[in-house]
Design a protein around this nucleic acid. Sequence first.
DNA 1: TTTCTTGATGAAATCGCTTTCATAAAAGGT
DNA 2: ACCTTTTATGAAAGCGATTTCATCAAGAAA
Lengths: 336, 336
Amino acid sequence: MSSIKDVSRYAKVSPSTVSRVLNGTAPVNSETKKRVLKAVKKLNYQPNAFARGLVTNRSGSIGVIINEISSPFHSAIVQGIETVVEPTGMHLIVSSGHNKLQPERNALNFIVQRRPEALILRLETLSDKEFLDWLRSEPAQTLPIILLGRYIPELSKSCVCLDNELGGYLATKHLIDMGHKKIAHISGPLSMKDSCDRLQGYRRCLETSGLSYDETLVIEAKFTEESGQQAMQRFFDQGKDFSAVFIANDQMAMGALYTLRQLNKRVPEDISIVGYDDLLFARYLYPALTTIRQPLAAMGEAAARLALRALEHKTIDIKQKFEPELIQRQSVLRFA
Amino acid sequence: MSSIKDVSRYAKVSPSTVSRVLNGTAPVNSETKKRVLKAVKKLNYQPNAFARGLVTNRSGSIGVIINEISSPFHSAIVQGIETVVEPTGMHLIVSSGHNKLQPERNALNFIVQRRPEALILRLETLSDKEFLDWLRSEPAQTLPIILLGRYIPELSKSCVCLDNELGGYLATKHLIDMGHKKIAHISGPLSMKDSCDRLQGYRRCLETSGLSYDETLVIEAKFTEESGQQAMQRFFDQGKDFSAVFIANDQMAMGALYTLRQLNKRVPEDISIVGYDDLLFARYLYPALTTIRQPLAAMGEAAARLALRALEHKTIDIKQKFEPELIQRQSVLRFA
DNA sequence: TTTCTTGATGAAATCGCTTTCATAAAAGGT
DNA sequence: ACCTTTTATGAAAGCGATTTCATCAAGAAA
């Protein structure tokens, strides 16, 4: 693969001049410039980003850590990030944490070695303490770091998040307002903060509404379609009695809907359902899913803007706190 | 951020020794080794991937170009690629072509500058000719390149694809076998080869079955949920008469299902539907979508394996031709 | 004792760029 | 005509790693 030296030889100039032409960092005689450009085209020269990054100390990349690119939840976030980062000519280097501690640590080291200019992290398993320790260490000190979906007081200026406890509360409140008294819950993995918060919101709402919290009406699942399917099945296997379920994400809700159909339970006539996230498919399900909306793309955009802002040392005000919002569709019916 | 020099100073050895410890490329006295490792930990040293890549000429990355990470179709592919690449310690650098010519070209240059060790490309808009020209030029000559979803005879050894014409045929055949005579089609953008092939398969099936091809029963849409919604609406606005529709991807089928529900048309009693792709959500729709399955993750895996194989100059035989398969669910009914 | 391995280490070159510094020619000012 | 800018360019240093080559001590072989 040709280097700047090849180009300079071909154009009969020095490498410095080639660099100047390509970067426009200094005036170059227009004849010379033409020769250089011709050589570049002729040799199909593509500058080596490594060499350039090494000397300029700018990698042109932003590191992103999420659990799994392939989940609709995370790809919505990444898409938001991408829409603001791409126009700047920078690129994303995304690594998957797989919701496991060691992979998450690895992803972090891995990304740091690529010398991103900023970091957008959606950490699930790393504890606040370990993360703060890491923050105090060398690499993190100089790097703008944005936290997605986690709030750490020490970093309040760089957290983008949404009140999941409130979201859980709103979901449950809606069901109670619609007359439901026996409300089950399918939660995500309780190792994840989001799950706990939503469960907590559910619980608080029950209790402040004078309904008792019944832990046998709560099943911990895994945020996947299949686990939602199984959880719902389990409720019926156990002969539980309930008229509504708050399900901690739309993917599980989709699975649960499927099980209910198998079981010949009508939604919302027999069972009302509220999901969480408002992923794209939610409105297309049957019945269209009533859910708590998280503006994932917007949150991704906010995180990216925050990161870019930090790079430019500017201080534009960017929304960091997002509110969960109830989206009413067809999966909830007033309980008679 | 600390460099190998800082570590070497701290451990009172030369940079060479630090490098040797970290890479295990030469025997190092165990006392010395301990000192170095302590320094590494103390300084939180992370080697600069740029510098390393520059000298070793190995970037540890594989370039991927797809249209849009956030689409469930593409993220299924990426996920397949990731599952085989990640365990090797390499990483993906994915860039979006956005299904537009210039962005696709840019993505290509952009990625080449990052010096990936192999390329996995799902090109939509770049013509065969332009692509082959590019292949003949410098950067491509030395780089293993895998083509996903496109077959170019000159590159037959590195194409992973699926016969979309056959897929279109199978979908239509199923509807005809079920007694349907008036079969509409919602296609993807006809600028995309996949769309053309599926349309072509649809057409061939009609004609070989003694049904005439009626172009007013074909609407070109955009492979998005919303465009599927609109296309279906248009059929009814135009008062078209048909008992079944073959829809060129599941996302549009999902949109179309929605429109049909709005219109109080029952699926499959009034209208039968066959989709394409068999994305995860297809089985969860109501009615569960009969569709043509593309094993996207497996194709991604195959592409990745092919790329890695090329890197190691090994010759394991890897499946490159995938077959479309009809998955029967609930969205098709025998036409009385 | 002398020579030959072997093991452990450091010095220095190198990868492909950018950037500073130096220099020479051309242009401008008096 | 002389000095000062300005413009255009090249030489060389340096980014942070790896790797080759050289060195040196210590133990083995003769």
